[in-house]
Nucleic acid binder design. Structure first.
Length: 305
DNA sequence: ACCGGTCCCTGTTAGC
DNA sequence: TGCTAACAGGGACCGG
């Protein structure tokens, strides 16, 4: 399931394979794939044809390609979305949603999405609310984050923890104001972006924090360990090329990542904890699962669990 | 304003 | 064997 590391892997692929090229034609095969483009599929295509893709930028799980028009082609992969650079002659699978053909003879860009939670849109670039003043000019070299501009539909999420725009102290303060569990906070993209269920469990395991720990009771050292765990697991996964659970996720070339072999908590129910040997437990949580080590990540006593 | 819960999707798997 | 139900989950949205 694409979270920040997988999206970053895709971004790097797009940077290499489609940036600098001019769009010749766009074909939308499934209207739901462009539902976030409110003016419809025809308008979506019209804003792309003739434009040149200028860069590949990421914040959290959002990815965008700024155009020479002041807009950007924005992508969210949802659960099962893929962006594939393939030869035009490559066979179209059953879940092909959008095709972007280029003016040159290189590969076309395909958006493929089985479960259709993902989608594409063309959106205006606006000033990044997370970057202000003179710092707005900087930040162009950071991993994944291109500039002081973000697409309109991405402006509402917080910076991700690998960006220079991410403010650790502000995050700690915001966290303590919340009245919820730490895992729910990690999944809140308006607080910290890029983390999904997999890396939330992995980061909590690394920080030795139980998923239900109340955010208001986290000590500064807990937050420091949490952010360290988050950053380390994201960096490790990017280095590994992204996690893959099944055939659903592949990177821009169609190759699967392999970070799933390195998971310490997520999906590891019953397996011994790599630190202490205690079997990893699975709890039902928010209609999904939370994996943790019951010894390394003790339940908060205050909840009576 | 914040919080928890629901719904959108479809392919795979578990269970009867 | 063949059906149904559960499950995976990001984010928009809604009601309290």
């Amino acid at each position: 399931m694409p979270e920040l590391p997988e999206v970053e892997t895709v971004r790097r692929g797009l940077e290499r394979l489609v940036v600098g090229r001019s769009v010749a034609a766009v074909q939308v095969d499934h209207a739901r794939a462009v539902r976030r483009h409110e003016a419809g599929a025809q308008d979506f295509a019209g804003l792309l044809v003739g434009r040149t893709l200028q860069a590949a930028v990421r914040r959290g799980k959002y990815l965008w390609l700024p155009l020479d028009s002041g807009d950007a082609l924005v992508a969210h992969l949802g659960m099962s979305g893929q962006l594939l650079a393939l030869a035009a002659e490559a066979p179209a699978g059953p879940h092909l949603r959008v095709r972007v053909r280029f003016a040159d003879s290189g590969p076309e860009l395909r958006f493929v999405d089985q479960r259709t939670f993902g989608g594409l849109a063309v959106q205006e670039l606006v000033r990044d609310p997370a970057v202000r003043g003179e710092t707005a000019v900087r930040g162009n070299t950071a991993v994944g984050v291109g500039a002081a501009l973000v697409p309109r539909g991405v402006a509402h999420i917080a910076p991700d923890p690998l960006e220079p725009a991410f403010d650790d102290a502000a995050f700690a303060a915001a966290l303590r104001k919340r009245r919820t569990g730490v895992k729910r906070a990690l999944l809140d993209q308006t607080l910290i972006s890029g983390i999904g269920n997999i890396y939330a469990d992995e980061a909590l395991w690394r920080a030795r924090l139980h998923w239900a720990r109340p955010t208001e009771a986290l000590r500064p050292i807990d937050v420091r360990r949490l952010l360290q765990g988050v950053r380390e697991v994201l960096a490790d996964a990017i280095e590994a090329g992204g996690t893959s659970f099944d055939a659903l996720y592949v990177n821009v070339n169609g190759e699967s990542g392999w970070f799933d072999r390195s998971l310490d908590a997520y999906g590891q129910e019953g397996r011994p904890c790599r630190r202490c040997g205690t079997p990893i437990r699975r709890d039902r949580w928010m209609n999904r699962s939370a994996y943790s080590c019951s010894k390394c990540q003790p339940r908060p006593r205050s909840l009576g669990l």
